[in-house]
Design a protein around this nucleic acid. Structure first.
Lengths: 277, 277
DNA sequence: TGAATAGTGTCTGTGAGACAATATTAT
DNA sequence: ATAATATTGTCTCACAGACACTATTCA
């Protein structure tokens, strides 16, 4: 595959439809993220929030019984974005979901059936609409993430099943921020989707601090405490109130609505301010 | 392509090899960037630097006579990264080049021949080795970039030919930093490579400020003035000396070599410091 | 009343922007 | 001597981290 030398671009391109370059199958897989809430029992306390991902149980070989990301094939007359959108809507029953291309995985043996290249996406779902998008075989898993210099450990839990993965990280180059991920432990996730999930988490974690993507996970109205919890759960660390409020100050606008009933001072409801400076 | 409803994941996956999902061709295209130098005539002055990209002239249809990014098909038994590396080495005669995946372009009609999806990469070449990698039909073009809120204009020049493109930008979502690019003017570049180049420029422009990727474009030894020029040319703006030196202070280490002969105070030669804090 | 969250004030240190000043060379 | 770059000093202002304090609700 590698040895042949081409004398010119012309010669090379002439071979574009030769049998040397067999066509292959293309799929898209989506890491659909949101933040789930869990009651604490204490009426005063806020609900515990969990960074969550939507997984689908495979009931056919290969990887029968394992969990995987929602995905499907890209049609020959269909844009990759369109395919991703189609799959997203089929899997969540929701529309107008935020979605962005993540990475294209192309290892030769990532699918045992045949050569399949996967263009992965991340998608973000309103945390108040988790219930609306549980279709057959799909389930939200909360994720507990432990990360250090060398590896990432993620524990998944959907209330019934529990499993965890360990992924090693290695910088692709000392000059870059790109990691090569190596699956060290994975009993429950199909294909290379463990890598996709970890890449997606990393993308979102970065992006939350320099874009407004979080608001795709919020309802129209939200309290700042709620918003802060979402930041904290994604970043995996606690934030100081005043600092947090400074950061998001010009991204949101206060409405005249308030939220009461929590056994504590009521909180103002805010709204995302589009086109802020 | 869109209408069919699947009762289950199983039913869906059963069809994985059905004719509904025809296989397609996959290529990779590379935006290979570097910084070229141009003599100023004045012995005192530093050479003028230009942000540059390597283009290849097509001598076959479609787009015969147009310029395009180096690229080629991904083999059925070949990783996408391997294909990219193979093409990069074929096109530049250089090894150990920095390379990272950029974006996967999958519009249905992006290639007039047939459905071809392209996984694009950016690559960065040592600015002292530009001459080493001019193969047949390939040429370095310097780029003059004018950017505002709505569009990007890039003028290309290789000393013989000159042309320019205009690309409109539109945020894909108000919450994101992702742009959709629309080609407004393009007479000289084949396929959708104008978009690829603009995406690549944008990626590099961002990445230069939070990673060390610049050093892939520098030789082993360099002066801080030279390094600053490279930053300036990529960022498209001038930097203040003290600020710049503060930023890169712990990324580089001073060597005992100096560079003289410039009609001005000699400059210390620095080296990239790997594993800095 | 007290537990819990909501919301604000302010001190401090870090770091970027800006400008000024000095150093050193080849012609 | 001069034009050009090399290099360092320092002032100021913006902003993040940290901590303290006040406000308000409901079982």
């Amino acid at each position: 595959m590698d040895g042949k030398e081409y004398q010119s671009e012309e010669e090379f391109l002439k071979e574009y439809d030769s049998s040397q370059f067999e066509k292959l199958s293309l799929t898209t897989d989506m890491a659909i993220f949101s933040v789930s809430s869990e009651n604490t029992g204490n009426y005063r306390k806020l609900s515990k929030k969990n960074f969550s991902v939507l997984l689908v149980k495979r009931d056919t070989y290969p990887f029968k019984g394992k969990w995987c990301l929602p995905g499907g094939f890209v049609g020959i007359d269909e844009t990759i974005d369109d395919a991703a959108k189609r799959i997203l809507e089929r899997e969540t029953n929701l529309h107008n979901i935020y979605m962005e291309q993540l990475y294209t995985f192309g290892d030769v043996n990532r699918d045992p059936r045949m050569r399949i290249v996967s263009v992965s996406y991340i998608a973000l779902v309103d945390k108040n609409k988790l219930e609306d998008c549980i279709t057959e075989n799909a389930s939200w898993f909360s994720m507990d993430i432990l990360e250090d210099e060398k590896e990432i450990q993620v524990s998944f839990d959907n209330g019934i099943e529990h499993f965890s993965i360990v992924i090693g990280k290695k910088l692709k180059s000392p000059t870059s921020d790109r990691y090569e991920y190596i699956i060290k432990k994975n009993d429950a996730l199909a294909f290379d989707h463990a890598k996709t999930i970890v890449s997606g988490i990393s993308r979102l974690k970065n992006k939350i601090s320099y874009t407004d993507v979080v608001f795709n996970m919020m309802g129209e109205y939200f309290t700042l405490g709620e918003l802060q919890q979402v930041y904290e759960v994604i970043l995996g660390k606690e934030l100081l109130d005043p600092a947090f409020r400074r950061i998001i100050a010009n991204k949101v606008e206060k409405t005249d609505k308030v939220q009461t009933g929590g056994g504590h001072r009521p909180s103002a409801l805010f709204r995302y301010k589009k086109n802020h400076e």
